[in-house]
Structure formats: structure tokens, C-alpha cells
Nucleic acid binder design. Structure first.
Lengths: 225, 225
DNA sequence: TTTAAAAAGATAGTAACACTATCTTTGCAT
DNA sequence: ATGCAAAGATAGTGTTACTATCTTTTTAAA
């Protein structure tokens, strides 16, 4: 099978669609590398341009600024993850099993997806852990939200929220629990690797522990007493 | 009673102790205002200097850069909060009641503390919600962690983790649950105010709902079945 | 096959930002 | 009265975050 995944990205995310050209694809591919290497704060269009052999102005034709590029990358990631979830839970009836699959997907290192040629999902996953929240934790949220830039994130939350309700239709906080699962999958991973004394699984550095913590958290909460 | 609180801040947080001079206190007071107004990204030492009638160089004598200043503010906040926790749970025996107090402190708008003259805690609380995680979500974490810059945050987590263990000595993830409480108190607040469709209490904008969610989450998890 | 348009490359320029350096003045402690 | 630390004043540098314009290359329609 040689299938290629393509997500319909909100066209307010970019000035020119990066998926439509070689240069665009290079921008995505190498921005992921560069942000991963330097961190988002030290990442600049200048450095990216030099790396891929174009000019700053060239990058600016695709993205208004690096913040927009970050939002694009996060949006792409959440779209991709929603697809992974849909694929993984297909044919599964039991909502409990579904939720467990989701938790595993969120908290475990992603294996690279051969269906997307110019994105390295495992590095992107690392970026989302460290930089993902910066996409919305700023003064422009409301504005960006009006342009529906966070729709993929919201969609995934909605999907997870629905699963939670399927487990227990009386549970009161399905959406908040969904965001808790997502954000904590990432935060616990970050803490485990960088501030291990903040977690209960510092020494092993084992993602399976995060999965167990999240499963315990989620299923204790939603099960009817 | 006219008491003044003073926290011993790690002296790697600054170049010159801002609490020791009028200018230093002005820097703290007005940086809080300015970050709150503009967001951390748009905040610059130039703007701060103009606002308080000094020069950029003047600010640089106190803080290496704006990131260090952010770490200072977060460290101060967590120290202050740990004190608030200690004060609030004094004489309370029941660890369940203690935990409830902590959740309330974390998830509720702080009333301004008249014991600290040059910090506006309620605005600082708002800043910590939006900018707090940026103190550690970056490439310098490990380095900064070696200098113990995150100790106040860690200390508070340890205190909360201990309470959790007091509730149930067999609970396996006290530290991870502690960070979950802290971070989710803030994230749910941010979502409620900025991306309400991600929460289950969007329309009311009521912090009491966040408290209820967190209490449900925490006590479902730690209670033995 | 020519023609035009869109995309990319090349180059330049600007205001703001993130600092560093140095020199002078002020205040206060001995 | 002297000395020293803090603060003020001023200047300068390299980088960042753009915007503008002009030329060349690629692509796609006439």
C-alpha cells in the first residue's frame, strides 16, 4: 500500500500553502528539525532560510511569522493524531478500550508514519510537548481562535470527550478531562525527562508509567461509584 | 497587625537583589503590570525602563534578561503560594480538608495580600496562568534546574504530594497528581476564559466549577476502592 | 510556441530588540 | 571629607523581525 495522507488545513494558517510546493515542504520539514534543535525561542526564519538554501523573504511568503508557523505545526499534529485515533479505535466497541488506546497514543513516542513524506512525526511530537502550549498561551488567542486556528485541537478534545461520555454518560466533566489527558500526557513526559523529581517515575524514564498514571486518573474519575 | 512577608530568593535568580532597593521594587511591581498588559513575548526591558523612568541598562543591572525575570516572578509566586497554603491549613488535621483548601487556593482568584507591598498577587496570578509554564518549557531547563531556580515550584509540589499520601498512603502517583492539580487549575482557568469550548463550564465562567472538577478528579483517584 | 502569470531568488533597507560598555552623578556610610 | 556603591546618561553593536523591489525561473494557458 502506498497511501499518502493529506489534511485540509485552514488556509488562514499560512499565506501560501506549504504543501503545494517543494519549498513549502522544505520549510515544514526543516522548521521541525530546527525548532527541535534550538527551541522555539531561538528559532528564526533567517536560520531556517540559510538551512534550506533560500532567503528570509522566501519563508515570509509562506508564513506571516514564526508564531503562525508554530500554530500550523500544532494544527497539523493534532489533525494527524485525530486520524491516528480514528484508525486505531476502528472496529473497537468498548469505550474503555478506546480510551486506553487514546491514552497510549498520547503518552507514547510516536513511530514515524510512512504515509506522510515531509513531516517527521516523532520529532514533531517532541516539539509539541515542549512548545505546543505556546501556540495558544498568549495575547492573540482570542483572535486566532476566531480564525479557527485551534480547530484540530478542539476536534480531538471533542472526540475524547465523547469517548468519556460513552464510558459514563453521567460524568460531568468530559471536555475538561479530555484536555487534562492531553496536556498531562505531555507535561508528565516533559517532567520525566527534564524535572524528574516532579514525577513518580523519574528514575525509570518509562513512558508506560505515564500511561498507567493517566489510566488510573481517568478511570477512577469516570467510573460510577 | 503590620507584618511584612519576605521570601528568601535564590540569588542566582538575579544579578542584584530587587528587594534591596527602590528601583528593584519598581522593576518587580511594573514588570508584573507590563507583562500582564502586553504578554511576555511583547514585554521588553526598554518598555519597562521607560515606564518606570530609568534606562534599559538600569534593568540589566538587576536581571540578566527577561526570561530570568520571569523565572524570578514565578519563583516568588510559588514561594508566596506555599506560604498561603501553610497558613491556610494550619491547625487542620484532616488531609482531605487540607487538599480541598489547596485546590481552592490554586483555582480561585487570589485576593491581594496586604503583607507584600510591591507585588500585586492577583495580577501575578493571572500572569502565572498564561506565562508560568514558559519558565521551564525551553532548552535551558536543565541548566536552570541545576541552579535550583525551580525549587519553590518543586517544594509546593512536594507539600501537595505529601497531603495526597496522607489521604491514601497506597496511592501510587502523589507527585504526578500534585503537578496535575497545579497545572490543571491554571489550564482550565485559561481555557474557561479564552477557549471555553474546551471546558465543561464555559458559559458560567465560574471558578467554583473548576474547583469542583479538580476535587472530583483528585478524590476519585486517591480514594481506595 | 508564445505569452503571461505565479513562484522563487537576490538584494537592500528599517525599526525594534537584546544586549554591553563607559563615564558621570548622587547618596550614604565611615 | 573621603570612598564606594547605586543609579543615571549616553552610545554603540549585532541580531531579529520584518517590508520592498527588482530579476530570474518555472508553470500553465492561449
Amino acid at each position: 500500500m502506498n497511501i499518502q495522507l493529506k489534511f485540509n488545513m485552514n488556509d488562514k494558517l499560512f499565506l501560501r500553502d506549504p504543501e503545494q510546493s517543494e519549498l513549502g515542504k522544505k520549510i515544514i520539514l526543516h522548521s521541525v528539525q530546527l525548532i527541535h534543535q534550538n527551541g522555539f525561542e531561538a528559532f528564526t526564519f533567517k536560520k531556517l532560510a540559510t538551512l534550506i538554501g533560500t532567503t528570509e523573504a522566501g519563508i515570509y511568503r509562506y508564513f506571516e511569522n514564526k508564531h503562525r508557523l508554530l500554530i500550523y505545526l500544532t494544527a497539523w499534529y493534532w489533525s494527524w493524531l485525530e486520524y491516528q485515533v480514528a484508525f486505531n479505535i476502528n472496529n473497537i466497541k468498548d469505550p474503555t478500550v478506546k480510551l486506553k488506546r487514546v491514552i497510549k497514543l498520547l503518552a507514547t513516542t510516536v513511530e514515524n508514519d510512512s504515509n506522510t513524506l515531509y513531516v517527521d512525526e516523532s520529532i514533531l511530537h517532541q516539539i509539541i510537548i515542549t512548545e505546543g502550549t505556546k501556540a495558544y498561551l498568549n495575547k492573540r488567542v482570542s483572535e486566532d481562535n476566531k480564525d479557527h486556528l485551534f480547530k484540530p485541537y478542539k476536534d480531538l478534545c471533542a472526540v475524547i470527550g465523547k469517548m468519556i461520555l460513552d464510558c459514563n454518560p453521567n460524568y460531568k466533566y468530559p471536555k475538561s478531562l479530555a484536555t487534562t489527558i492531553i496536556e498531562m500526557a505531555h507535561f508528565q513526559n516533559f517532567f520525566m525527562n527534564n524535572l524528574p523529581s516532579l514525577t513518580d517515575f523519574g528514575q525509570h524514564k518509562n513512558e508506560a508509567e505515564i500511561v498507567r498514571f493517566l489510566e488510573d486518573l481517568v478511570f477512577s474519575s469516570i467510573k460510577t461509584p
